[in-house]
């Protein structure tokens, strides 16, 4: 399976057959019906925005219009949707396009379809129930309810250590054993844990649906942090058959905390040299912060990779097998 254009006379052909195209249509319809039945309103927000995510691990494609203004292709519709929530929209969902620079591979495409939704008044556990109900509708009922495993339990069980107390030397040893020279890469604790999550924990989760939740506070993104001896982010990832499908939060609502997290990320990004054009490094989104100050309702939200779900439903092994125009054939 190639993501490159075909050299023969068949170059015009889409990369999928009609069965997959019909399955995509059926899933889009079923998702809309599911939310409609529950009074969750469909919204559509811009793909091209003046601001974007500050997370140093996510690269936004950007462009300049003829007046020189900078625009970003959205990596998720999160910021716009939160401004709608602050306006009083109530629970909302969106099937949108998302773009991530540099993400290309079996489970990644530079452009993909994201199902994102927010449930006002839900916490992350109720949102996980909601996701299961949607999956039952789309994939058929699971054989048993999805397992819910904390990040800590997952590492203790599959990697053999407590991720909240393990020292950096032990993490370097473990990464080395799994072919990542983390010392050379000057990896910090979080980066080491990222690799071991991907390489050790994720494959060990096995078949079926598993939620991993309560991530370290340092990987909170925009989730609420629950204080404790080891504060954890009320954030979860859903894996099906070991493949990451969705990422959700009990949403952070505190505008000052949001500003602090975005400023830290902005400064890290300035120093990290991950952006080819330093002028394009995204600054904290003042409109999003102001929306939080005005009042984001208590809610939980999740982004689900539509194409990955379709891939699993169709029994395919790569995104290019379910995207009509994957990679460079687009």
């Amino acid at each position: 399976m190639s993501l490159e254009p075909r050299a023969d006379g068949q170059a015009w052909r889409p990369g999928i057959d009609l069965d997959i195209l019909r399955l995509r249509a059926r899933y889009l319809r079923a998702i809309r019906a599911y939310f409609d039945e529950r009074g969750v309103m469909e919204v559509d927000t811009p793909v091209l925005c003046a601001t974007t995510v500050t997370d140093p691990a996510i690269s936004s494609l950007h462009t300049r219009d003829r007046s020189g203004r900078l625009w970003y292709l959205q990596t998720s519709p999160e910021f716009s949707m939160k401004r709608l929530l602050a306006m009083g929209s109530g629970s909302i969902f969106q099937l949108s396009r998302a773009f991530r620079d540099g993400e290309r591979g079996r489970y990644h495409n530079i452009e993909f379809t994201m199902l994102e939704w927010y449930r006002v008044g839900f916490d992350h556990h109720r949102l996980m129930d909601d996701i299961e109900a949607l999956l039952d509708r789309l994939l058929g009922p699971g054989e048993e309810p999805a397992r819910r495993l904390s990040f800590r339990e997952a590492f203790e069980r599959f990697a053999g250590f407590d991720p909240f107390v393990v020292d950096l030397d032990t993490l370097h040893e473990a990464c080395g054993a799994y072919r990542f020279d983390s010392r050379r890469a000057k990896a910090d604790r979080d980066t080491c844990l990222d690799w071991l999550l991907a390489e050790v924990v994720q494959p060990a989760l096995g078949a079926g649906r598993v939620f991993v939740l309560d991530f370290p506070a340092s990987r909170a993104a925009l989730a609420k942090i629950r204080p404790g001896d080891f504060p954890v982010a009320e954030r979860f990832e859903l894996y099906i058959d070991g493949i990451e499908i969705a990422n959700g939060y009990h949403e952070l609502r505190d505008a000052d905390e949001l500003r602090r997290r975005m400023s830290v990320e902005y400064r890290r990004r300035l120093g990290a040299n991950v952006d080819s054009d330093p002028e394009s490094i995204p600054k904290p989104d003042e409109r999003l912060i102001a929306a939080h100050a005005a009042g984001l309702p208590a809610c939980a939200g999740v982004a689900l990779g539509f194409d990955r779900l379709l891939m699993l439903a169709a029994g395919r092994t790569g995104l290019a097998q379910v995207l009509p125009f994957a990679g460079q054939i687009a």
Partner: peptide
């Protein structure tokens, strides 16, 4: 080479 990225974290190249 394969692009690997766990959730909200660092991306890797296997």
């Amino acid at each position: 080479n394969e692009f690997v990225k766990p959730g909200k974290g660092q991306a890797f190249v296997r």
